[in-house]
């Protein structure tokens, strides 16, 4: 089974978010980058599946050269080789097209990625890739087991869970607890340097969206504590101060 895991290169979840150039650019000063946490789970599941069945794992990232340390980390975790599409991941459609092109060229049985990236949280790429390739896409997938060429999955739905059986090939947007999160070990880190990382140029330039401006959410206000036995005060505050009643 040939597995493709698509990974994003996103700011560490503890990063301080700020913007520059009149709020049109993300301020990267002092920001550490990581594999998108949901993508990390997808990769971890791919490694587990590879341990159970014969196969190979390729990771793909759409990004400029600065994403290579992140890609190397994915190789250290257990991917066999990597593709970097040499372009800024400007929007979901563009990224989905690059992934679909790679799949058409290389032929993968299973395409895994996170349910969404952790920078723009679009959550659209898996659906678009499925559409562009004419194969099913499922998200958010919480469990995924293979039985030959058939996958058994559970998907989170509004207020419940859905069990799905699906034949390869398909696309899955993953989330925890699909796999145990993996820390790269020393052997993996040392072998990552010699694994192939192929850089390819992007094809097409369809932009589904253009960016106008970034904005931070409003700062949280102070919290006022009201004693549990003082309902009247709470009602007064909600009515007169918060003005939401």
């Amino acid at each position: 089974m040939k597995i493709l895991v698509c990974i994003t290169h996103v700011p560490d979840t503890t990063s301080k978010i700020a913007f520059t150039d009149g709020d049109t650019k993300f301020d990267t000063t002092g920001v550490q980058y990581i594999i998108g946490p949901y993508d990390d789970y997808a990769l971890a599941r791919a490694v587990e599946l590879k341990e159970q069945t014969e196969g190979s794992i390729t990771v793909l990232n759409v990004g400029t050269a600065e994403t290579e340390p992140t890609i190397r980390k994915a190789l250290a975790i257990g991917a066999d080789d990597a593709i970097r599409v040499n372009a800024e991941p400007t929007d979901s459609l563009f990224v989905a097209q690059q992934i679909a092109n790679a799949v058409k060229k290389e032929g993968f049985d299973l395409i895994l990625m996170g349910r969404e990236s952790l920078d723009f949280n679009g959550g659209m790429v898996h659906g678009m890739v499925g559409e562009l390739l004419g194969i099913p896409s499922v998200s958010p997938v919480m469990t995924l087991d293979m039985d030959g060429f058939t996958a058994k999955m559970t998907r989170e739905t509004e207020g419940g869970k859905e069990s799905i059986e699906l034949d390869l090939p398909f696309v899955a947007g993953c989330q925890e607890p699909i796999a145990e999160w993996k820390i790269p070990n020393m052997r993996g880190i040392m072998s990552a340097r010699s694994k192939p990382l192929n850089v390819i140029e992007p094809t097409g330039n369809d932009q589904g969206a253009t960016l106008e401006k970034y904005e931070l959410p409003a700062a949280k206000g102070a919290v006022k504590m009201v004693s549990a036995d003082n309902v009247q005060e709470l009602v007064d505050l909600l009515k007169n101060e918060a003005k939401i009643l």
């Binding site: 340390p69 190397r72 980390k73 790269p184 020393m186 990552a192 340097r193």
Partner: peptide, 12 residues
């Protein structure tokens, strides 16, 4: 980068 990755493994 490799040494930084090793350090990150220790942190993780």
């Amino acid at each position: 980068e490799e040494q930084k990755m090793i350090a990150q493994t220790c942190r993780d």
